[in-house]
Amino acid sequence: MDFRKLVSERWSCRAYLPDQVPDDVMRDMFEIAQQTASWCNTQPWQVHVLKGDATRRFAKSLTEHAKTHEQASDLGMPDGYHGVYKDRRRAAGYALYASLDIRKEDWDARVAQRLKNFDFFGAPHVAIVTTDREQGTYGAIDCGGYVANLLLAARSLGVATIPQAAIAMHADHVREYLDLPEDRLVVCAVSFGYADTEHPVNGFRTERASVDDTVFVVGD
């Protein structure tokens, strides 16, 4: 697939078919993503991939935890959303709820939809991405590059994905469940599988800002 087309047509999937991704396809995804550039070639990412019944057991455990516990992330949350960042966030949320016909005042439906994050939106697989604690901010940045490449690699192989910061908001439970050592920080999750293209939640797309609003060229 042409790279521009690949990037422009990638989207976040929030409803999946139950079909497992074959092991050889999964390996291709992660082999492609492993080529990601990193600070001093440290490659600080490690990934724990769940499949089959293991995914469902983890989803059940994480959902129950999220219902009864406060957030506890390894990485700092945004201090706030103001100006254009608030506008973009609200537009994305509005598009999501509109696709599902969930009204603003329907709090129960909104909570139920939020909890689907911890069920990985029904995806048959979830990848938990962690970074080395000592690598600090740049380790997390490197993991971001890795995640971006993983999403595109999956798309190129016909696999749907959604990157999820929500999972990292309960890093304490993720660490305990997967028996992660203390030197690993939970960055995010990537849920993946084959898209349920008939589900209305997969029908909306978010917009991107103009390059003129984000890139500033200095010089003649």
Results as ranks from 00 to 15, higher is better:
residue 93 G to R: 01
residue 104 K to H: 10
residue 93 G to S: 04
residue 207 E to N: 09
residue 220 D to I: 00
residue 76 G to D: 13
residue 115 L to F: 13
residue 134 E to R: 13
residue 68 T to R: 14
residue 205 R to E: 12
residue 119 D to C: 06
residue 153 A to M: 05
residue 182 E to R: 04
residue 51 K to Q: 13
residue 98 A to Q: 14
residue 103 R to F: 05
residue 85 Y to L: 14
residue 172 D to V: 14
residue 135 Q to D: 15
residue 54 A to G: 03
residue 165 A to T: 04
residue 57 R to E: 13
residue 128 I to L: 12
residue 177 Y to C: 02
residue 180 L to M: 12
residue 113 Q to M: 13
residue 149 N to Q: 14
residue 171 A to Q: 07
residue 146 Y to S: 02
residue 167 I to M: 09
residue 206 T to I: 07
residue 207 E to W: 02
residue 152 L to A: 11
residue 41 N to P: 08
residue 81 Y to T: 04
residue 91 A to T: 11
residue 192 F to Q: 04
residue 168 A to P: 06
residue 146 Y to A: 01
residue 84 V to Y: 06
residue 107 W to T: 10
residue 90 R to W: 08
residue 53 D to G: 12
residue 137 T to Y: 15
residue 83 G to P: 10
residue 153 A to L: 04
residue 159 V to H: 06
residue 130 T to Q: 03
residue 6 L to K: 03
residue 110 R to T: 08
residue 195 A to S: 08
residue 113 Q to P: 03
residue 207 E to R: 12
residue 96 L to N: 05
residue 178 L to W: 10
residue 85 Y to Q: 11
residue 179 D to F: 00
residue 7 V to F: 04
residue 84 V to Q: 08
residue 108 D to H: 12
residue 78 P to W: 02
residue 54 A to S: 09
residue 64 E to A: 10
residue 21 V to K: 00
residue 32 I to Q: 08
residue 46 Q to M: 03
residue 187 V to S: 02
residue 148 A to P: 05
residue 208 R to P: 11
residue 206 T to F: 06
residue 65 H to V: 08
residue 32 I to C: 06
residue 200 P to M: 12
residue 32 I to V: 10
residue 45 W to E: 07
residue 25 V to W: 03
residue 196 D to Q: 05
residue 190 V to F: 09
residue 34 Q to M: 10
residue 40 C to E: 13
residue 137 T to E: 15
residue 52 G to P: 02
residue 193 G to L: 13
residue 105 E to Q: 13
residue 148 A to W: 00
residue 206 T to P: 01
residue 157 L to E: 10
residue 57 R to A: 13
residue 167 I to R: 01
residue 159 V to G: 06
residue 81 Y to Q: 07
residue 177 Y to H: 11
residue 185 L to K: 11
residue 176 E to G: 06
